[in-house]
Simulated scan of single mutants.
Amino acid sequence: MKTGKGAAPVKEVLAFLAKAYPGARILLDHRNPYELLVATVLAAQCTDERVNSVTPALFRSWPDPAAFAKASQGELEHAVRSTGFYRNKAKAVRDLSAALVERHQGHVPQTMEELTALPGVGRKTASILLGACFGVPALPVDTHVGRVAFRLGLTAAKDPTRIEEDLAREIPRGKWWEFATRLGWHGRQVCVARKPRCPECGLTTVCPKRGV
């Protein structure tokens, strides 16, 4: 899907984001790719802060995929209960961990195809792993990225996969990860969902949907 006329100039957007959010990063605490993978699963419909409060004890009890795969459903449910949807999340983590042990000797794979073949891992989660841990160009599209990209006229799509395709055409490949991470921060801090803080935004002059 092509972007509409009047889209914000990509060079100006990239320059603004680089200046405004030079230290933008994933907010889920992790020490290795596996911890980030588990944390991302737990973050579904839950705040990063809540997940970060749960994972230290979680990884002390079960430090690797083999340990998680052997944990009981009940134990994991209790451990992740405060993140919400704890039954589904506990099962997802167990299934995911078992698949890593069986298919990848307990290591997190480094390709989109292998990651999305794991139980419960979609393109957004895979993209987060690829960009944050493996330095692979990736464009994770969460609600913040999708909302701000739409307001800037960089996409007219609503489906995350279509949004990713649109952005991949507009943004230089080598800047995908930093763009998505910084745009997400902008969406959390300024271009918020209910009432965007346009007077605080450095993109107001080029935003075709300011105030929307």
Rank of each mutant, 00 (worst) to 15 (best):
N88E: 09
G23Y: 03
A18Q: 15
F134M: 07
A149D: 00
P9I: 01
L17T: 11
W177N: 06
C46P: 00
A168G: 13
K175C: 11
V145D: 06
L27V: 03
H30D: 12
H186V: 05
K19A: 15
M112H: 04
I128A: 01
L28E: 02
R50V: 07
R162N: 13
I163N: 00
T125G: 07
S82T: 05
T161S: 05
P109C: 02
A39P: 00
L152Q: 08
A149E: 07
T83V: 08
G23M: 09
T111Q: 04
G174E: 14
D64H: 05
R194G: 13
A126P: 14
I128G: 12
M1Q: 14
E75N: 07
T40C: 09
A44G: 02
R173W: 11
N52Y: 08
V101E: 14
Y21T: 11
E200W: 11
K5R: 14
W177P: 01
K11N: 15
G84T: 04
A79L: 12
D48F: 00
G131M: 03
G153I: 08
G120H: 07
A7Q: 14
G146F: 03
I171A: 10
C46E: 05
I128M: 13
E178W: 04
E170G: 14
G6F: 13
T83R: 02
S61K: 14
L139F: 09
L154P: 06
G74C: 08
G74D: 14
C201V: 07
W176A: 10
R210C: 12
R123M: 05
I163Y: 05
L36P: 06
G187K: 12
D159K: 11
E165V: 15
H78S: 13
P208F: 04
A24R: 09
H107F: 02
T47S: 15
F59W: 04
G153C: 09
L130E: 03
E200L: 07
L42D: 11
E165K: 15
A117R: 08
Y21R: 11
R173H: 01
V10T: 15
L129H: 09
V10A: 05
D95H: 09
R162Y: 00
T83N: 04
D64N: 13
S53Q: 01
D159C: 03
E77H: 10
G174T: 12
R194L: 03
E35W: 06
A43I: 03
Q189I: 03
W177Q: 06
P109E: 04
L167Y: 05
K2L: 14
G120T: 09
L154I: 15
E165G: 02
A138N: 02
C207F: 08
H104N: 01
E164W: 01
C201A: 14
E170A: 15
L58Y: 08
L36T: 08
W185N: 00
F85E: 02
A15V: 10
K11F: 10
H186R: 13
L130C: 05
A180N: 06
G135A: 00
D29T: 06
A138C: 09
P208E: 05
K209H: 15
A7C: 14
H104V: 06
R182H: 13
G106F: 07
R81C: 01
L17S: 09
K124C: 14
L203P: 07
L203I: 13
V93W: 12
L27W: 11
L100D: 02
V121Y: 05
K209Q: 13
L129V: 05
P196T: 03
L14H: 04
P196A: 01
L27T: 04
G4E: 15
I163F: 00
T47Q: 10
G84H: 01
